[in-house]
Write a protein that binds this DNA or RNA. Structure first.
Length: 476
RNA sequence: GGCGACGUAGCCAAGUGGUAAGGCAGAAGUCUGCAAAACUUCCAUUCACCAGUUCAAAUCUGGUCGUCGCCUCCA
């Protein structure tokens, strides 16, 4: 049984899907105003592992990740005009239209998703293409009398939703006391959040705009997730995932909107990815201490090592990101891949009766750890032990073709979650005939030097062969 | 100021009441130079600190210190 730590109840709970055998997952995706960094991806990778493990367990998974391509207001230092929208700021910076900016960064994002081998979601809905649905939902909220209109927008009255604050553990009264939110005179509470913003004041010249019953303007940040998750996955989600920083106010507001509009629980399980840390500071766009996937590839790290680094640490612990970690990850992956090559190339001899039971117990341990709130580190340990035992069996008793298939089948099922192993048999590269002759001569030459114990010359020849792409591994 | 998470070896990281997984790095050895891979052995009397509960605590309770996150756009 899969147990998941539910951020809403703050307890581990046994997973039960809304519909038998099916799972709906909604993940808060990127805001496409600049390059997503690996900290962003670590949250998406958490969802990816969840999706893949549920598939591994045989569930029919439907996964939706939104693309936020509507600019939302910002007050950070990125722009001088106070309160300029991020997309518009990027548009000025890069001299492109807001639409071009959004599409450009969305394309980069989709490219990175493929590089990091995230399982393709069933749908990546764009906020700008669902403004109709958002307006419909706001209308429902209006009928339920939980919203009010001011000169600059339409707001959700959080006093009408008693559970507001439960997810983040915030007490609204207490929040108000230590508030850093600028008081908007027209709002009843500083924490009432916008559903619709009008083109007035600092938003007068907002470029992305739509008509609505409340005047021309643009949607608030939170409503898109409520509207799109409902459209594609229904009123009650099995899982809602995102970064922990989205808990408040974003997810809190989504719950208020959706549950008020639908009169149903919004999500049964909430999963939040802890922040990625760099030098004891969060990795974030505003601090500028981030790496993008492309940055790391340029430094020579493989997509697999990036993926493994973020996947192998439990999603609820802070991951301190370093380049050393990428190197370690690569070593772990190499260890698996070396094992796979060893396995593929080992001679098929006799049936080995121990193989099945080794696989069985490894699988059991692996699943036990994964079932415990996706404990990947715990699940990895038995796999290292597995490789050791199998190697021993092959060296001492040999294996049959059937055994090999069994082992590979198991490794592939594990890899359906990790996606970092390489099952392709590494064959000797084909050399041209002239190269072949040279290589043979060089090997002979080296053997000659070795028999003469002329190690200096022998190593020189080995270096030369290495340069030609020929690896020399001495065996007894 | 309010809310939350966390503190396990040189590093990364499991373990949440029954006597410290695993990986990396390191040390020694086997494989008749070296290197690579593999294998064998070693590498935390102790889990930030202090009290308490218990036959038994890294695990539970209280306190102290420290770190990080959220409370404003962020995954």
């Amino acid at each position: 049984m899969l147990e998941i730590y539910n951020s809403y109840s703050k307890k581990k709970e046994t997973f039960k899907p809304v519909a038998e055998g099916k799972v709906n997952i909604y993940t808060c995706g990127p805001t496409v105003y600049s390059n997503a960094h690996v900290g962003n991806f670590s949250a998406f990778l958490m969802a990816d592992v969840l999706v893949r493990y549920l598939k591994y367990k045989g569930y029919d998974v439907k996964w939706v990740m939104n693309i936020t391509d509507v600019g939302h207001l910002t007050d950070d230092n990125e722009v001088t005009d106070d309160g300029e929208d991020k997309l518009e700021a990027a548009s000025k910076r890069e001299n492109k239209t807001v639409w071009e900016i959004a599409r450009h960064y969305e394309d980069l994002f989709m490219g990175d998703i493929r590089t990091l081998k995230l399982f393709p979601a069933d749908k990546y809905p764009r906020a700008t293409e669902h403004v109709e649905e958002m307006i419909e939902m706001i209308k429902i909220l209006q009928q339920k009398e939980v919203i009010y209109e001011t000169s600059d927008g339409v707001y959700f009255d959080i006093s009408k939703f008693k559970k507001y604050g439960k997810l983040s553990g915030n007490d609204i009264e207490a929040l108000q006391a230590g508030s850093r939110v600028e008081i908007n005179e027209d709002k009843r509470s500083a924490y009432d959040f916008a559903l619709w913003k009008k083109l007035t004041g600092k938003n007068e010249k907002h470029i992305m705009q739509w008509d609505s019953p409340w005047g021309t303007g643009f949607p608030g940040w939170h409503i898109e997730c409520s509207a799109m998750s409902k459209k594609y996955l229904g009123e009650t989600l099995d899982f809602h995932t995102g970064g922990e920083d989205n808990k408040f106010p974003h997810h809190e507001s989504e719950i208020a909107q959706s549950e008020t509009a639908n009169c149903k629980p919004f999500a049964n399980y909430w999963m939040h990815k802890s922040r990625v840390i760099v030098n004891n500071e969060k990795m974030s766009k505003s601090l500028g201490n981030f790496f993008t996937v492309q940055d790391l590839l340029k430094l020579g790290y493989t997509p697999e090592s990036i993926r493994f680094t973020f996947v192998s640490v439990h999603y609820r612990s802070k991951l301190n990101f370093t380049e050393e970690k990428l190197v370690e990850s690569q070593k772990s992956i190499d260890k698996f891949n070396d094992f796979i090559q060893f396995l593929i190339k080992s001679e098929e001899t006799v049936e080995n009766s121990s193989i099945s039971s080794i696989i069985k117990s490894t699988k059991q341990q692996f699943e036990k750890a994964m079932d415990d709130d996706l404990n990947v580190s715990g699940a990895l340990a038995p796999l290292f032990g597995f490789m050791k035992s199998i190697r021993k069996q092959i060296n001492s008793s040999g294996i049959s073709a059937k055994n090999k298939d069994e082992i590979l089948h198991f490794m592939k099922s594990i890899n359906s979650i990790f996606e970092v192993f390489d099952f392709e048999e590494k064959k000797e590269k084909k050399l041209s005939i002239s190269d072949q002759k040279t290589v043979e001569e060089l090997i002979k030459k080296r053997e000659q030097f070795r028999s003469e114990k002329n190690w200096v010359e022998a190593d020189k020849v080995r270096d030369e062969l290495n340069k030609m792409g020929v690896k020399i591994e001495d065996k007894k």
